[in-house]
Amino acid sequence: MSTTVNETMEIVYEKPKTLTESPTHYCPGCGHGVVHRVLMEVIDEMGIGEQTVGIAPVGCSVFAYNYMNVDMQGAAHGRASAVATGVRRVLPDKYVFSYQGDGDLAAIGTGETIHTVNRGENILMVFVNNGIYGMTGGQMAPTSLCGMVTSTTPYGRDASFIGHPLKITEMIAQLPGAYYVARHAVHTPAAVRKLKKAFKASFEFQKEKKGTCFIEVVTNCPSGWKKTPLEANEWMEKNMFPYYPLGDIKVPAAMK
């Protein structure tokens, strides 16, 4: 890449060095790229890149390790938190994060999710919830809203037949092993700044071995939702946020 730098200009914003040069495979308007960036920015700013191991899921973010320039392992579908447990237990002084979508964390991996948090594993679990299976082509996810049209609920999600959208983050917050649980978004600069603070606090708690930090990020899926990025964000604010309200869910006294 060729760039011309005017040495008299001050650099006010640049790519975190823990992000690689890989071109993105995410769809236009997708929230994953922003979440990746915020996570890596925090790791850079805290200077913990050399001590961090990430666990990638199966789903749209299966290629997270293509972008995150830290040591990573790709887990089987749903098992990221079990893999993260294995890593963190043998590297008790390192930082470990897992990164999963809603299908991965809240459907096939529900057992691992609950028990990992229940053990209070000292990891950061990043849960990206867009209410749909994006990678496989827009099927119903555990978090798809009632009435939501997906490729496997072509007439809309019928809760009486298939169950209600799962608020797994609220469930997680009930567990004693969960130290810090919050729900954020990346649809506005203000939201991004809040998410960044939450990631930073999570790594700080991890250093002090306080237990599991669980951060949900409610995002969009323009391709899966069959909307433009702008429409998707509007739909998310109108429909997703009322069911999945943003904000802290379980906050340690130290943060209050």
């Binding site: 191991v53 893999v83 237990r89 691992e112």
Partner: peptide, 20 residues
């Protein structure tokens, strides 16, 4: 560590083995 299932056990092994 006693895991919650054999599925979790083998994936913890995967993580630990990957971490050396």
């Amino acid at each position: 560590l006693q895991a919650e299932s054999e599925i979790a056990s083998i994936n913890m092994v995967y993580g630990a083995a990957g971490a050396g």
